[in-house]
Design a binder for these strands. Sequence first.
DNA 1: TTGTACGCGTTATCAG
DNA 2: CTGATAACGCGTACAA
Lengths: 349, 349
Amino acid sequence: MPSTSDHSHPIPAKVTIQDVASAAGVSKATVSRYLNRGDAQLSPEIAARVAAAIESLRYSPSPMAQALKRGRSRLIGLVVADVTNPFSVAVLQGVEKACRDAGFMVMLFNIGNDDIREREAIESLSSYQVEGFILHTLGRDTGALAEARRKGKPVVLVDRRIGDSQVDLVGLDNASAVRLAARHLVANGFKHLLYVTGAAKGISSREERVEAFRSFLHEAGQGLQGEVHESSDDKPLDMELALADWLGRTGAEAAAVLSANAVMSLRVAEACSRQGWQFGRDLGFVGFDDPSWMPIVGPGLSAIAQPTDDIGYLAVRCLLERLRGEQLPPRQILLPGTLMSRGSSRPLK
Amino acid sequence: MPSTSDHSHPIPAKVTIQDVASAAGVSKATVSRYLNRGDAQLSPEIAARVAAAIESLRYSPSPMAQALKRGRSRLIGLVVADVTNPFSVAVLQGVEKACRDAGFMVMLFNIGNDDIREREAIESLSSYQVEGFILHTLGRDTGALAEARRKGKPVVLVDRRIGDSQVDLVGLDNASAVRLAARHLVANGFKHLLYVTGAAKGISSREERVEAFRSFLHEAGQGLQGEVHESSDDKPLDMELALADWLGRTGAEAAAVLSANAVMSLRVAEACSRQGWQFGRDLGFVGFDDPSWMPIVGPGLSAIAQPTDDIGYLAVRCLLERLRGEQLPPRQILLPGTLMSRGSSRPLK
DNA sequence: TTGTACGCGTTATCAG
DNA sequence: CTGATAACGCGTACAA
């Protein structure tokens, strides 16, 4: 048994490149070369010895030291507005997968919907030498973006723009998605549409959706009545009142709600639950986002599903291209939503 | 204006301790001391110069270099069986908060319910010099735990044990929680209980819950009939059949389902939705876990809510204590569940 | 082809 | 109280 594969003595906790070098009877440089350039420049005999030593010592290089040396950490920073948001988690999944495929690791920073911590996130993450950022933030420009650029690290935005900045963005084709939903409702005979959204203040995707809804109404002409209700986070009951008022005015006839995201869908459903309004009987419904519970609420809630996995995956691919130094102009990758038609959007009665 | 606060020239991308030293006209060592031991050992005049330099250059030390030097990286590794699981996300939140409070960062590794990647997770994470692990894994012992210990890094398990290993564990008091749910159902007049769980193969929390359910039945005696259905992941429709069969046999009278977790609750609800069975009319229901959608399904789904935030938070606290070298015996921190009583568990009819 | 020596940004030791 | 200097683990010119 060659001494290099002797495992009678326990492997020390930290095994460094020096240990491998000693075990193989070569220098650190040789081991390093074996690792990085493959065994192209190595004599077969030496390469074999190094390989054996690495194997028996279970050596793996320290990414920290590597990062320190060559600037690249194989880390990417993911900043998320709110991990509680199912959309964020779904994107996270795609991001994680893409990173794994490319030999990167994700460093996650959840800012819990707190503006102030946005800067903090960039600071922390970039102190850890992340090579780039994927940002799913609040949308208000807190200087985080500028900060990231100042550090010379590429950024890809997800779902939401920041200010009118020129950065890569991956997200949903909001305009088309809204039309998809609205046309579906119209096709099913609905004549009164209420668009329910959260405070849109600065969140581009929300603004785009409302905007698209308004232009849809405009194009549809007099045959279709529509309104927008902006629900505030601290007064969720206002929405219930608004809903009641609206249902009253429309005579509860051919009226449907279009909800801007999963959180809003939940609130609408809560309101209906409390008031005894039933989807498919008293009002129609389509919501953005398609979390797992949509099919089991009432007659099944119809949804515009976002290709969340793809969004996360493409965001990373996009970032990696920047990392390779490709000097393309800022891109917008807009993906189509998918209509999931369920009971809540079938013609009433 | 003193030259140290002159910001007319742009700040270079990488500002090192050496830059600060030069700017302040002192040595690296002095700056380092100022940073680490405070200004206790510094002459006020020098301390002020250093402070000014740090401020004007916006210097912050590199955690990578620090990690390399002193072994401690201020990183903790979080390994999660499946980010899609709301429970995991909820715990993640608590973990993240605790880490932030303690000046640590989280490195996330999602193994996507894939046994094989468990080892991989430990390897990757510990190569990044994480100081310890929080593990929410599949439960099958894949050697991940041994691997972590071999590297001399502390481990805290969340929700699930691994083998019969002696490690810190933070989770739900499953026995009490099951009794809480079952007693609630019995108190509301239910006489037939069906416990629906996923494949429990090796997942300790699932096993404990089933076990607790069985002993509850045993103690309750003849007045209460109970069964356990183990639903397999690849044949979700079997559960629907089992449900139908069971409802038939019990004469759909005073029958209630007890679901082992959120995923199962979803499946049960799907089955009921397809079959037209209504909670609160045809059968009662209580489920473990209380995701946001539970209140809006049917008459509201009753639940045993887990203190997920606390679980994550305490797991980190526990880990930090180990990091401080405290040599306590392996602890088990079991937290109580909370009954959320809603329409689905009210007496039928 | 292989080894030597230096530097990445810090901290710690040892002089002064 | 402060400043050189070595070392952490690694990659890479440069020399051999």
